[in-house]
């Protein structure tokens, strides 16, 4: 019952997002067919608009779009002319998802490690070191980190390719560039919640029972400390596997990150809608899965739909 209700809410949420996007995107000035100020003759523009149903009034366009959407058809890309939005997303999602997953794995593992090290060494050298690493990670934006990685990791050292896509070596630098920010944030989250957990009575009890530190931390510590981290990982996961504009651009990754930005600059309406809906779908799905996750991590959290 709970799951069904959630699914219905998700569809409604998506519909609202789609409608809002439709309204907002049509209210920004600009024309998909005007790439520069050289004006095409009016008749030519009219022909082009007709081809994409843009000559219809907005409500009609909306209905036509909804109709296609019910068949999971995002329509053609105005910019690309010969390719449709479904293909763009399908092709671009794979590289973005691979990078995103790799970055998430790296970020979670190292983030957890850094956070735990810091918490266990509270207010000592390792704590400060971990947190310096974390603060640097948060403060250095990817558009600075990525060129630095290219300069020192690829050009100077000559061990890795500068950019582009193909072999797994190509994924190393962008994975690092993507992972550093989330890693740092996760580390800080884990440290805070771990510190709190460490002072709990059940931890003291476990210690008093003579259990080893590793066992206590792994069995009781991480499990409790990770709950706030999970709620943060959800949205992060959704946004990172759907690609990022900056990192994908700098490393020339054929992902979908650029469509989120370029489509708006180009006023490529079907791509704006397609990418927004795609991203929102992944986001609500992830949030849903995260909620399910909670239950496994902490059985005290109940799946209820009422107001208990």
């Amino acid at each position: 019952m709970y799951v069904i209700k959630r699914l219905i809410t998700m569809v409604v949420t998506l519909w609202i997002i789609m409608t809002l996007t439709f309204v907002i995107m049509n209210s920004i000035p600009g024309d998909p067919f005007a790439s520069d100020a050289k004006s095409l003759p009016e008749e030519i523009v009219k022909n082009m608009r007709a081809k994409y149903n843009l000559d219809e009034p907005l409500p009609v366009q909306y209905v036509l779009y909804m109709k296609d959407l019910l068949h999971f058809d995002f329509g053609p890309s105005i910019q690309s002319k010969t390719r449709d939005v479904n293909t763009l997303i399908a092709e671009g999602f794979l590289p973005s998802a691979i990078l995103g997953l790799q970055a998430m794995v790296v970020a979670i593992i190292l983030g957890l490690a850094l956070g735990i090290i810091a918490a266990l060494n509270h207010n000592r050298g390792l704590d400060y070191l971990s947190m310096i690493v974390a603060i640097v990670g948060i403060s250095v934006p990817s558009f600075i980190l990525a060129p630095l990685l290219i300069k020192y990791g690829a050009v100077e050292a000559g061990i890795l390719p500068v950019a582009s896509w193909g072999t797994w070596q190509h994924t190393i630098l962008p994975t690092i560039a993507l992972a550093v920010g989330p890693l740092a944030i996760i580390a800080r989250f884990v440290r805070t919640s771990m510190l709190e957990v460490l002072s709990q009575n059940y931890m003291k009890t476990a210690e008093a029972k003579g259990l080893s530190t590793v066992y206590i931390v792994c069995k009781h510590g991480i499990r409790n400390a990770i709950i706030p981290v999970i709620s943060f990982i959800g949205p992060l996961f959704a946004s990172i596997i759907t690609g990022t504009f900056v990192v994908e651009k700098i490393f020339a990754i054929p992902g979908i990150g650029k469509y989120f930005v370029d489509s708006i600059f180009n006023r490529d309406y079907p791509v704006i809608l397609g990418t927004t809906i795609f991203y929102s779908t992944i986001l609500v799905l992830t949030l849903f899965l995260i909620d399910l996750c909670y239950r496994f991590v902490d059985p005290r959290i109940k799946m209820t739909s009422g107001s208990e």
């Binding site: 060129p147 290219i150 500068v162 950019a163 582009s164 700098i250 020339a252 650029k258």
Partner: peptide, 18 residues
Amino acid sequence: FKMIADATTEYQMFKSKE
């Protein structure tokens, strides 16, 4: 033809003979 949008990356790839 590679498709590299970032001018700095492109320049670095020239420097690294890619």
